[in-house]
C-alpha cells in the first residue's frame, strides 16, 4: 500500500512554482496535496497528484528534475488527538519519519497524512494489520 509522491527540485526563483503548477494544469493533472521544503538556495516541491506517471513525464519533458518518491498515506480522523494516535503507533513500531504533511479530503470527516519514512516496505508491513488505516493509490489519487 505504498503510494507515489512526485518530488521536484526547484531553485528559489520567482515564478518557478507558478510554472510547475501551470504545466500540470495544462496537462489536466489535478494536484491533491502539496508541500514544500526549502533551504536558502533551493526547495523541494512534493506533490500528490491524480496521475503520477503522467505528471513525471510532462515535468521531465519540460526539463525539470523530478522523481517519483514512495510514501504512505494514512487516513486520520479529523478530530483532536487523531494525528497523535497515529504518530504514537508509528513510534511504537519503530518507524522513523523523514517528513510528513497533511490535507483534508472532500468528505472532511477524515484528514489524509502523507508520511515519507525511512524504510517504506517495512513500515507498510508493520502497519498493514494495525489500527492505522493506509490508503491505497486508487483511493488516494481521487480522494
Amino acid at each position: 500500500m505504498k503510494v507515489k509522491q512526485i518530488s521536484v527540485f526547484l531553485e528559489n526563483k520567482s515564478g518557478r512554482l507558478a510554472q510547475v503548477t501551470k504545466i500540470l494544469g495544462d496537462n489536466r493533472i489535478n494536484i491533491r496535496a502539496l508541500a514544500i521544503a526549502d533551504t536558502a538556495d533551493y526547495g523541494i516541491l512534493r506533490l500528490i497528484v491524480n496521475d503520477p506517471a503522467k505528471a513525471v513525464a510532462v515535468l521531465r519533458a519540460e526539463g525539470l528534475t523530478v522523481r517519483e518518491t514512495e510514501v504512505i498515506a494514512v487516513e486520520v480522523p479529523d478530530q483532536p488527538g487523531g494525528l497523535a494516535a497515529v504518530l504514537q503507533e508509528l513510534d511504537a513500531k519503530g518507524i522513523n519519519i523523514e517528513y510528513m504533511y497533511a490535507f483534508v479530503g472532500k468528505t472532511a470527516a477524515n484528514a489524509i497524512v502523507i508520511f515519507r519514512v525511512e524504510e517504506t516496505d517495512r513500515a507498510v508491513a508493520l502497519l498493514e494489520n494495525s489500527r492505522v488505516k493506509l490508503l491505497p493509490e486508487s483511493e488516494l489519487y481521487h480522494y
Binding site: T39, Y42, R67
Partner: peptide, 14 residues
Amino acid sequence: VSEEMFASEIRKLE
C-alpha cells in the same frame, strides 16, 4: 541536480 542525485529529503541533498 540530475535525477540520479536528487532525493526528496533536504537532509540528503544537504
